[in-house]
Simulated scan of single mutants.
Amino acid sequence: MSEMKRDTVERSSADREIVISRVIDARRELVFAAFTEVRHLSQWWGPEGFTTTTRAFEFRVGGAWEFVMHGPDGTDYSDWITWTEIVPPARITMLHGEYRDDPNAFESVPTFAPDGETTRIEMRTVFPTKELRDEAIEKFGAIEGGQQTLASLAGYVTEMASKGSDS
């Protein structure tokens, strides 16, 4: 894709996206494993105070992760993710909604860039409309929640790395 074309694509989705990033003190293979293996996901997924219960999990293109996030106030949030692209250990593209075929589902693309012994993870999320993005920010605290989720991932992976666990 030409640079000009790429700029046009990015500008056209800018009012519908949220981008959150963090540097994690662990190798990218470990960070990628924590993001793609169900035994790890349930240990860190979600903002502060949330827990996650997995109903089904199949990590492959076309596979799905069905789960419930339990909020600190007792509210349960049903979630469904399907993976549309997997490029280990560099990138994942996933569609995230409340249920299969959710018309309000959004696309998230976490990328994992190595920097020596650390990893820079960037999560780019594009919503179908600006209004859905704004609602996610205002009603659900998507930016703070995303930052907290990546902080939880960082804490979990850093602890794994300090124990010498490779996955």
Score class of each variant (00 low, 15 high):
Ala105His: 09
Phe67Asp: 01
Pro110Ile: 09
Phe50Thr: 05
Arg22Lys: 09
Phe59Ser: 01
Arg27Ile: 08
Thr75Pro: 04
Asp73Gln: 08
Glu29Leu: 12
Glu138Pro: 00
Ala34Ser: 10
Thr53Leu: 12
Glu37Gly: 01
Met123Val: 10
Asp115Ala: 15
Val19Thr: 15
Phe112Ile: 04
Val23Thr: 11
Phe57Asp: 01
Thr75Asp: 07
Gly116Ser: 11
Glu66Asp: 14
Arg133Gly: 00
Arg28Glu: 03
Arg91Trp: 00
His96Tyr: 15
Val109Pro: 02
Ser21Asp: 12
Pro103Gln: 06
Gly63Asp: 04
Val87Asp: 11
Thr53Ala: 15
Glu122Val: 15
Asn104His: 09
Ala105Ile: 02
Tyr99Phe: 13
Glu66His: 13
Phe112Cys: 03
Gly141Glu: 02
Arg28His: 10
Gly97Phe: 06
Arg55Pro: 00
Ile24Arg: 10
Arg133Lys: 09
Gly62Met: 12
Val87Trp: 01
Met123Lys: 04
Gly74Asn: 08
Ile143Thr: 02
Ile121Ser: 12
Trp83Thr: 08
Gly71Pro: 07
Phe127Ile: 05
Ser21His: 11
Arg100Met: 12
Asp134Glu: 15
Arg124Phe: 09
His40Arg: 06
Glu131Asp: 14
Pro72Ala: 15
Glu29Ala: 14
Pro72Arg: 14
Gly97Val: 03
Tyr99Gln: 11
Thr111Cys: 02
Phe50Val: 05
Trp65Gly: 02
Leu30Pro: 05
His96Glu: 14
Pro114His: 14
Gly116Phe: 14
Phe127Ser: 05
Gly49Pro: 11
Glu66Gly: 07
Trp83Arg: 06
Gly63Lys: 07
Leu95Thr: 14
Phe32Cys: 00
Phe32Leu: 04
Ile86Glu: 02
Leu132Asp: 01
His40Thr: 00
Val23Ser: 10
Asn104Lys: 13
Glu135Ile: 05
Ile24Gln: 11
Arg120Thr: 13
Asp25Ile: 01
Thr84Val: 08
Gly74Ala: 11
Ala26Val: 08
Pro128Glu: 04
Val19Asp: 13
Ala26Lys: 10
Glu135Lys: 15
Ser108Cys: 14
Pro110Leu: 06
Glu135Ser: 14
Pro88Thr: 01
Ala142Pro: 00
Gly74Asp: 10
Glu117Val: 09
Ala33Arg: 07
Phe127Asn: 07
Asp25Met: 04
